[in-house]
């Protein structure tokens, strides 16, 4: 199959964030960046599908400045065949603007499947994949926690609140990937060497108008420091008393 995967470069989730002096961005000094978590699952899903189903092509796309080339190389070191950077000076917070750039490029790509993460770590928005599908006019399954493709048809599972639905859809289609399907593989040394020679094309991004902008960023209020009330089962009566009288949740 011909599969496209759209990946975002995001800071490592283990980081402690600081707000930049502008107060409308995080301070990027010293942060590590990588493929955003759900998008890295999407890369893994694409690679597994093509490994299982015989010859195919996995192409990765990223909208952003030149630093995203590193992210695209990482995906190629995992096994993606080639990469396309849609170049912008900065990635806007506006998901629809990013979706327009991706849709404009993917339209003529002839892909059977286009994969996204359920949401990106930084925006935590879950917009880009579904909006791209809508712009392309192809079926879209959001937040798939299982995915099977056979005979030109897909089957996916989606977790709902307290339930799950199993859906079927024709190809070509867009699927956004949730937890539960795949963990990204680590690139092998061979993969890293091979990635250096794989094609990476750069084109200008045709972003849509940016109408969602960051006004400010703040760190959330810290929780009051925790306290240990005792040890072992002997501490249970005190816990119950506190839950009843102080926290008033029992």
């Amino acid at each position: 199959m011909k599969i496209a995967v759209c990946i975002k470069r995001t800071p490592d989730s283990e980081s402690r964030f600081k707000i930049a002096a502008s107060s409308a961005a995080i301070d990027e000094a010293g942060l590590k960046f990588d493929i955003d978590d759900f998008a890295s699952y999407a890369v893994e899903v694409a690679l597994q599908l093509n490994e299982k189903q015989g010859p195919g092509e996995t192409v990765v796309y990223a909208v952003g400045p030149d630093v995203v080339q590193e992210t695209l190389r990482k995906a190629m070191s995992m096994g993606a065949d080639r990469a396309v950077q849609l170049k912008t000076d900065a990635v806007p917070y506006d998901g629809l603007a990013v979706a327009k750039a991706l849709a404009a490029e993917l339209e003529s790509g002839g892909y059977d499947l286009v994969l996204f993460g359920k949401h990106a770590f930084d925006t935590s928005a879950g917009i880009v994949g579904t909006a791209t599908a809508e712009l392309l006019g192809v079926p879209c399954v959001t937040a798939a926690s299982k995915l099977d493709i056979a005979g030109g048809k897909g089957t996916a599972r989606r977790e709902l609140e307290g339930a799950a639905e199993i859906v079927e859809f024709p190809l070509p289609a867009v699927v956004t990937i949730d937890e539960g399907i795949a963990r990204p593989r680590y690139p092998s040394l061979k993969g890293i060497m091979a990635a250096k020679k794989k094609p990476l094309e750069t084109k200008p991004a045709q972003l849509g108008p940016v109408r969602v902008t960051v006004k400010s960023m703040e760190l959330p209020a810290e929780r009051a420091p925790g306290r240990i009330i005792g040890e072992g089962a002997a501490a249970v009566p005190e816990l119950v008393r506190l839950l009843q009288t102080e926290a008033k949740v029992l």
Binding site: Y93, A125, V212
Partner: peptide, 30 residues
Amino acid sequence: IASDVTSIEAAGDALVVKHPGFANKVVVTL
């Protein structure tokens, strides 16, 4: 579109919303 917001206010012609980004580690005002 703005997703997953915890507050909405009108500010002139714009709407101003708060959204927990970076997996709840940063409060983003959009």
